[in-house]
Every structure is written in C-alpha cells, then in structure tokens.
Nucleic acid binder design. Structure first.
Lengths: 192, 192, 192, 192
DNA sequence: TATGAATGAGCTTTCATTCAT
DNA sequence: TATGAATGAAAGCTCATTCAT
C-alpha cells in the first residue's frame, strides 16, 4: 500500500497543499497568492485547506520552517564536514545548486521570504548558518572576503541564476551551470 | 509662493506618489502594497491618486519604465565607454552599487519586479543590456565565464548585499562594501 | 428540512438574487441598482452575490437571456401556430399582455434593456422575432402596415400601458385592459 | 455679433451642457451618465459645469422642465386648436413625430425619465396633457378607446418607433414613417 | 468663467475565514 | 475530511462636489 512514491493520489492532502503553496508563494508572493489559488491547484475547496492548516500565516510558517530545516541540515551534514575552507565553499555551491535544481520553488521561496517578509527570525534562516562559516574563515584568515560580501556572492549569484533560468534566459545543462558557477565563485574566494 | 525653490512642498504630487510607491512596492510587493498605503504616506486620499495615475497597474508601469530607463542610460553612458572588458566590469560594479546606494528603493524595486511579475518584457530590463555585454566578451574570448553566470554573479551579488544591508546583517561603510565587492567580482572574472 | 415543499426558504439563493435583480434593474436601471441594493433585499451580504454570479454584468446577461428565451418561446409556441394573420396579432397581444401581467418586472426589464444598453445583440431579443412575423405578412400582403410601424404599435403600446399602470395612471382591471388594447390594435391592422 | 446661429462657439456654455446632457441622459440613464462624461463631450472640465448648474440633479430638473414645457406648449398651440377629435389625433401624431424627428434626444429623455425616475411630478408631464384630451373625448363619446389605452397607443408607438430607428431597425424616410404611423393610429381610433 | 487638484462617500469586487452539512 | 454558502473587512476604483487659483 505504501512503497516508494506510488500514485499521486497517495500523497496526503497536507503535503499536496504544501507543494502547491510553496510554488505559488515563490512566484506570486504571499499577498499575491490566495487560498483559493492554492485550493484550486490542489483540487479541493477553500474550506478544506483549513482542515490542514489553521490559517494562511500557518502555511507560511510551516513552509519556512520546513525548507529552512532541510537546507540547514544539508549544510550541516555536507558542508561543515569539509576540512578545508575551499572544500567548504565548493561543497556549499554544490549543495545549494543541487537543492535548487531539485527544489527550485523552495529555493525561490526563501528569496521571496527574505525580500517580502517584514519580520524575519533571522537566526533560523540558512543564510545565517552560511554567514557564520564565512565569518569564522574571515577571522581565521582563510579568506579576505568580507563575510557579508562572501555570503551575497554565493547566495545572490545562485539565486539570480535560477531566476534567469526560469525566465528562459539561461538554457544551459544543469552540470554545465554547476561547473561554471563553481569556477566563478571559487576564483572570487581565491587570494589575489 | 516661494519662487523656484526646491522645498519639499513643491515636489509635484505625481512625483511624491511615485517615490512613496517605489519604496512600498520594493518592500511589500505589488499586492502587498495598497493604494491606501501609498495615499496615506503621501498625505492625500485614495481618490486623489487616480488624478495622477489611471490605476495601480499604471503606477507599476510608470515606475518600471522610469527606473529601467535611468539604469540603462547609466550603463550606456558609463560602462560601454570603457575600453577594456575588465574596465567595463569594474565600472559596472561601481555604477550599480552607486545607483543602489543612492536609490536603494529603486534597486530593490527591480529585483521585486523580476521575481513577482509574471509577464516581463525582458528586452527592456537593464539585465538584458548587461547580458549583451557579457555575451560579446564571451564570444571574443575576453572572459571564460558563461554570460548568464557572469550576469548572475554581478547582479545577484550586489542585489543580495543590499538585502542583507537592509536586514541589518551588514553594517560596513559604503566605500568598504564597494571596494570589497569589486575585489571579489573582478577576481571571479580573472582567468584561472 | 421539509421535503420537496415549495416554501420560500427553499428557493435557491441564485434564483432569489435573480428575482430581486430583475425588479430593481427594471425600476432603477443598471447603474442605478447597486449590488448592495440587491444583496440587501435578498437578505445576504454583498460578497455572497459573487458565489452565484461572477459580476454585475453577469447578472444582467443571465437575466436578459432568461427573459428573452422565455418570451421568444412563448411567441413561438403560442403565436406562430395561428393560421390567420389576424389570429396571430390577437394572440400576440394576449401573450404579451399576459406575460406582462404575470411578470411585470421582466417585461419592464426588456424595455429598460432596450433603452439603456449600448451594445445589444439584437437578433436574440423578442422584438426581432415579432418583426419577422410582420415582415412576412407585409410581403404577403396580409397587412399594409410597415413592419417597423406594426412592431412599434404592438410593443410600444403595451409597454407604455404597463408604465402608466405602475405610475398609477391606469387603474382598470386586467381583462378590461386586455380587451381594450386588443380592440385598438386589431383595428389598426384592419384594412382601410 | 449675435445674429441667428453663427458659429458653434457662440452657443453659450450652459446651452451646450444642456444639449450634451439630454443626449447622454437619454442614452445611458441618469446614474449611467457622469458629470465627467458631460464635461468631456462639451469640452470643458468637471468643475466648470458647476458654474452653470448647481448639481447634477439641477441639470435633470432643468432639462425636464424645459422639454416638458416645449412639448406641452406645442400640444396646446397645435393640437388643442383642432375642431374635431380625429383632427386632434392626426395633429397630435404629426406634432409628436415632428418633435421626435427634430429632437430625438429630448423625446427619448422623457421616456427615460418616466421609466427611471422614482418621484415624478406627473401633473407637469406632457403625457398628462394628452391624457386629458383622450379623457374628455371618451366622456363625450368621440372615441370608445379607454383613455389610458389611447395614450399608450399614441405615445408608446411613436416612442418605440424612434428606438427602433436608432437601433437601425427602421431605415424608412421620415415622411414615410409619419404617414404610416398616422394611418395606423387613426385606424385604431376609428369606430368598429 | 474655467481649471485641476482634492475630498469623501460609495461603488464593485476580492479574500481569509467560518460553519452547517 | 471535505463541501459550498456565507460573512465581513478591505481592496481598487468612481464620482459628485468643492475650492484655491
């Protein structure tokens, strides 16, 4: 009855709502996405949403926590284990881009969240975690890039690349993009 | 009442609406900003807005065209005149960051527009202009960075830096940020 | 709660909206009737209207089609089956006046629609159907009245009689009015 | 400088407003016509209207009184002087149709006024005057048509004919229409 | 007289949320 | 769990009217 990924109908409704919501929020913003929009794409009625989430705000909180945790976990598991700083940067780009290729909506969601939300609990967001990495490296003299510049460089570049990709501006293969982005970013981190 | 003075009261209402609108749109998004919000901050009633703009959509069109033209003009005048590719990249970062320091709302507005708008007449946006620069350089062998990666690197990094700045994550001086960002980006463009 | 009874509460909301709307539109015009007016008389809130009709325009379209179809059907079934032209005119007056006595609001609605709407899909309106009857009779020599004069005579007279009735100018019994109107109109159609 | 009807610019603004207003009111109704509509077609701004009329209501009152007086005067001068009842009916049709041919907007205006206005000072309207004629004739036995039926027949038929004419349904010449309408109506009044 | 900016009330419509079924 | 009708607040927009110039 369960197995791995049977038919779409077996995905629980709450999960289907979450998937649709993250896509719509990431494309149209929070106010730009209505409960009706979400319900419509899920294939249920508006009222049904409230069986799974107590409010629109609740959906946003749920998604933000979930995406953040997933990404922070990834960084913790995949990036922090690296020995060298260069290794960490390389792995960071790989992890972020891999995440973005697999979950473009979730990746975009975080950007939209950063830009549009007025009150952001910064400590919990992935950016904070990454900033810490760069801060420590900066203090230890492993890089001469200002931590916030380093963070902007990595997150901003990748983020924008995926926007361009969705706009159809970039049509390159996934592995090409990964290789090229890694090349550019690693050079920026390399000393003068 | 006071000749050709430049006191704040003499700024025409349409311009005051535009300034408030660009700030609010860039912070709360298009749907997240109401006509009432705008009117309230300008100090007029909602109805008065409609003497100057025919609709909310009209305000958005006006702002987009205006900001785009200003930035495209700047790039045309300041960046394209450079002789070397490195000179162009350097000047590009300077021009963009200078624009962003002076017009943070307008700069953010463009990002928000990119992310939230569904139908974008891409040709007209500044990014398009910059992409062309990178494309030509790539074809001439002046850089080995994929054009879309180069564009993402420059625009994305700067864009994100200003988001971090507004979130209070970065508190460095303007000229420090400019110098550091230029350093990082120029390195990325330098050959291997 | 009470089986298939026909108590007023069991009339579906959409139908209740339609009935109120046809009355208000026919008395105060389209712009003169507000959604709030309609909702208020139905006993629901303005927003509830939009669960049943997508817009005010949608209500107007719905009513126009419905009333038109009913009247055209009536004419088709009751008038066209008559053998003689005189019989058709007589039956036409009966059918129209009977319809107007029973559905004064619907009858008035059509008049208001004729007068106030700018773009009318004429083919669909009952008048068109009647005009055809008169045209054919005119061509066959069954009457010497110009088709448009004949149509004006029948529709215009009846229409105006009902306006006078609602203004309180005419207080005669229904069957008196029917008899007298029939007498007048039939004479007009009779040869010289 | 004055003479009889020089250039259009010499028509006083108040008169130009009145002419535009009667046309718009007669086509779009009272609520459906805005001060801006009127001002726009006159070629002045909204504020300027208020130099000539104290309110929209004032324009309506002015037009109603003016059109009514003109028509009542016409009836008094042209119809009541006839010796025979048949002569009066004939002259009435002539006068009404001539008025409608020359002032289609004013003629329509009265219809719209009858239908849409909630409070009508009936005594003053032309219909009242005509009804009196038919009442007296009915009492004297000069016609066997019920006064309200007679009134509906004359006013309603002519009214509708002009609506059809504006809708493009009738394309006959003016004198043809007059002759045919007179023929039809006179027959209706003729005894059995 | 006329303009044009502004007001304030009211319009149509949207939308998050509730609730009886 | 889900539906669908309804609410009520707020959105975008319109419009008669006012007023300084």
């Amino acid at each position: 009855m369960s197995g791995k990924g049977k038919s779409l109908e077996l995905v629980p409704t709450k999960e289907r709502i979450a998937r649709v919501a993250v896509r719509l929020f990431s494309k149209k913003g929070f106010k730009g996405t209505t409960i009706k929009d979400i319900a419509g794409e899920v294939g249920i009625t508006e009222g049904a949403i409230y069986r799974h989430f107590s409010s629109k705000e609740d959906i946003i909180r749920y998604l933000t926590r979930r995406i953040t945790e997933e990404l922070v976990d990834l960084i913790r598991r995949e990036v922090l284990k690296e020995r060298t700083f260069t290794g960490m940067v390389e792995r960071l780009v790989e992890v972020l881009m891999d995440f973005a290729f697999k979950n473009p909506d979730s990746f975009r969601y975080l950007t939209v969240y950063h830009i549009l939300r007025e009150e952001i609990p910064q400590e919990d967001l992935p950016g904070r975690k990454i900033l810490e990495i760069f801060r420590r490296a900066y203090e230890k003299g492993e890089t001469d890039l200002l931590p916030e510049v380093a963070l902007s460089l990595v997150i901003g570049s990748i983020d924008r690349l995926f926007i361009l990709r969705e706009l159809g501006v970039s049509v390159a293969e996934e592995d090409t993009l990964l290789r090229e982005m890694k090349k550019a970013i690693l050079r920026a981190f390399r000393g003068p």
